[in-house]
């Protein structure tokens, strides 16, 4: 089932990407081609196969509960677009 323009808009909203109206049909078209292509996966029966999330089936490595980081605010905020008094600023958010 092809993806509709409405769905493309919904996905774009989830991904926080704006698509200009003039580009909409080309995105819709390309996404449909890509999805049709990946739909080839349906050709194979995978019932009962455990999904593989990670190539090496190892277990999580852990670190000790130790504070190892020092304050580097100045360095980290030197690349920030907008800060004030050590805080990052964004347009007002209404909760």
């Amino acid at each position: 089932m092809p993806i509709t323009e409405k769905e493309v808009r919904e996905i774009a909203q989830l991904a926080r990407i704006s698509i200009a109206d003039k580009d909409m049909s080309s995105y819709e078209d390309q996404l449909n081609k890509i999805l049709a292509f990946v739909d080839e996966m349906k050709a194979i029966e995978t019932e009962g196969i455990i999904p593989l999330a990670h190539p090496l089936e190892e277990t999580q490595k852990l670190r000790n509960d130790k504070v190892s980081e020092k304050n580097q605010r100045e360095s980290y905020q030197s690349v920030a677009p907008t800060t004030e008094n050590g805080l990052y600023l964004v347009p007002q958010v209404i909760e």
Binding site: L62, R63, E69, L87
Partner: peptide, 26 residues
């Protein structure tokens, strides 16, 4: 603590950083 003085590269999600799990939480 003062704002953002306890925010490391990992906490700030700088490009390329990775999480490593604290043993104690388990």
């Amino acid at each position: 603590a003062k704002a953002n003085t306890q925010a490391s590269a990992v906490d700030l999600a700088l490009p390329g950083v990775l999480p490593v799990l604290n043993k104690r939480v388990l």
